[in-house]
Simulated scan of single mutants.
Amino acid sequence: MRLDGKIAVVTGGARGIGAVICEKLAEKGAIVYSCDLGAGEFTNPNIKMVNLNVTDREGITKFVEDVKNQYGKIDILVNNAGITKDSLIQKMTEEAWDAVIDVNLKGVFNMTQAIVPLMLENKSGSIINMSSVVGVYGNIGQTNYVATKSGVIGLTKAWAKEFARKGEQVRTNAIAPGFIKTPMTKDLPEKVINTMVEKTPLRKMGEPDDIANAVLFLASDLSKFITGQTIGVDGGLVI
């Protein structure tokens, strides 16, 4: 499953799952732009760090123009950037609502709107949107986050139809991770982690590599007849 000659863009690529995705794609031969607000630590020379905010439309436009001038294409877009600002609806501030919507939903729109014309021009591409299991079944205290992750699933379905309507081989899919071992979950109380594991049929938490492998599959030609789908990588949590 090689990606030699492919140009990939990964948002939220400096750390956590995003960094593992960058490493996986680069390991398979892609030139990967890791777009984030902070610098990541990579040893693979195929990974290029870019300081980019997915809410900065001007910055995104300039970035895409630079990549186009250098390579003439972008083959893979992984919309992975995301934040949380959790609270019950009674306590959720408008600022918390707007911040999560701007990054997790509008950020996906911003990046895709800027990059998809290049894919359509080249008549091929794979867009991979990061959703979540909570976008499927909801969660207490995450009104804003759930709204974005459900919205991402809707965008994925709409774009799968829109971007292929003239025969272009531009595919759009989503991944809905379950409970994954990340720096964010590492500090959770043991009781909370045990509850997560008990709810998961495979009785364990996932690894970032599990998500990166799903991204690799959707980025590669092995998935060339798959579009508009949301793939749960959750140990069977949502069945």
Rank of each mutant, 00 (worst) to 15 (best):
G138S: 05
G138M: 07
K166R: 15
T185W: 02
W159Q: 12
E168H: 07
A174L: 11
I153S: 02
V134A: 01
V146D: 00
G141I: 07
V152M: 08
I127Q: 05
N194L: 12
G135I: 04
K157D: 02
S132V: 03
L188K: 08
I175H: 06
G151V: 06
G125L: 07
Y137W: 13
K186P: 02
G125T: 13
G141N: 03
V134G: 00
N194T: 11
F163E: 07
I127V: 15
I140K: 10
E162P: 07
I140A: 10
N173Y: 05
N129V: 15
K149F: 10
N144F: 01
T156A: 10
E190N: 12
N144D: 01
W159T: 05
V136T: 14
K191T: 11
N139H: 12
T172S: 12
G141Y: 01
M184G: 01
V134D: 00
F179M: 11
P183N: 04
N194F: 07
G125A: 08
Q142W: 00
V152A: 04
F179V: 04
W159S: 07
V133H: 00
T156N: 06
G151T: 03
N144M: 08
L155W: 09
T172G: 07
M184H: 05
T182A: 02
G138V: 01
K157P: 09
A158G: 14
V136C: 06
T182I: 09
Q142C: 03
G135T: 09
G167K: 10
V146A: 00
E190L: 12
K181R: 14
I127Y: 00
Y137Q: 14
I175K: 04
I128A: 09
K161S: 10
